[in-house]
């Protein structure tokens, strides 16, 4: 009902390369969705389709609109930061504020100036005179001052130091997010956004391989660590991923009851980063054995 983004059999091919391959999903109002995938997995292509920056095949509806039709109209309700430091380098900070105010009906100058006043960003300097961190802060300040329904962030903090990155997401949560807004974010630093997400989508080779709320993840995925003698018992429960090192064997399970796992080891929740690695390992069991008795027989 409240779907902000609705994709049905969405595809985007570049020649024979399937950047996005027959993908269907739906993102509801008030969610913070992490789109997670490795380089070249199709994240940016998918986001570009959602933002009306590229054409696509299949069905896609963003806020009830076909994004490939009228990007300008869509951008009155959707905001995005693609990549770090995309603000025009020749512009002065004050001019960026004037500009957004002039073209965006939902922009609040007061808000923007308030956000900027909490930083060290000088208003009369050109963008090229600012540090990368400041440019990102400014961009976030501009975007947060726009009363949009959907905010899309594509690697917005890449290459910034950890203090900036932490503050970026803190600001986003404290000053911007409410349950009338929806945020879609991609990043390599999975750990940093793990606790702000309500949903995660894993994308690999243009396909969505996992689409789940974070709450469901915690009940669905578990990991156990066992010694060598329990390996067979663990393997019998069909782990989706395993890793053996120094005599300790780590298994990740999907939808295996916790009681069953408890018979072998002590089941723990799987961190998003670990889960990502597990799901990205080509769907098959990865036996990355670096154990002491490694024979090199496994691949």
């Amino acid at each position: 009902m409240n779907a902000i983004i609705e994709a049905k059999n969405l595809s985007k091919h570049y020649g024979s390369f399937k950047a996005v391959d027959d993908v269907s999903f739906s993102i509801g109002l008030g969610r913070i969705v992490g789109l997670i995938g490795s380089n070249g997995a199709g994240k940016t292509t998918l986001l570009n389709a959602i933002l009306g920056l590229t054409r696509y095949k299949g069905g896609l509806s963003v806020l009830g609109q076909d994004p490939s039709q009228d990007r300008a109209k869509l951008m009155e309700k959707v905001c995005f930061i693609s990549d770090v430091a995309t603000l025009p380098r020749w512009m002065k900070v004050s001019q960026t504020i004037d500009f957004v105010e002039g073209v965006h009906p939902a922009f609040s100058r007061e808000k923007a100036l308030d956000y900027i006043s909490r930083t060290q960003i000088p208003l009369n300097k050109k963008i090229k005179g600012l540090s990368k961190g400041m440019v990102t802060q400014l961009h976030l300040a501009l975007v947060m001052s726009i009363d949009a329904q959907l905010l899309v962030l594509d690697e917005p903090t890449l290459g910034l130091d950890i203090i900036f990155r932490k503050r970026f997401y803190e600001n986003l949560l404290e000053d911007y997010f409410d349950h009338e807004r929806t945020i879609l974010v991609t990043t390599h630093q999975v750990e940093e956004i793990e606790n702000i997400l309500t949903d995660v989508m894993f994308i690999r080779d243009g396909k969505i391989v996992l689409n789940s709320s974070v709450d469901d993840l915690t009940t669905r995925f578990h990991q156990i660590t066992v010694e060598d003698d329990a390996v067979e018992a663990a393997e019998a429960l069909n782990p989706i991923w395993q890793k053996s090192a120094m005599g300790m064997n780590n298994f990740v399970f999907d939808s295996v009851p916790q009681e069953k796992l408890a018979e072998i080891g002590s089941p723990k929740q799987v961190g998003l980063a670990d889960l990502f690695v597990a799901k990205m390992s080509n769907g098959k069991i990865s036996k990355a054995k670096i154990s002491k008795d490694s024979t090199g027989a496994n691949s």
């Binding site: 990007r71 009155e76 995005f80 693609s82 990549d83 995309t86 025009p88 380098r89 965006h104 975007v143």
Partner: peptide, 20 residues
């Protein structure tokens, strides 16, 4: 230049059409 410095991504995030 807007492609080279990638600022087109900022311009395109505004409700302004490519024609405009």
């Amino acid at each position: 230049e807007e492609r080279i410095e990638r600022s087109y991504l900022f311009w395109k995030s505004m409700p302004v059409s490519d024609l405009q």
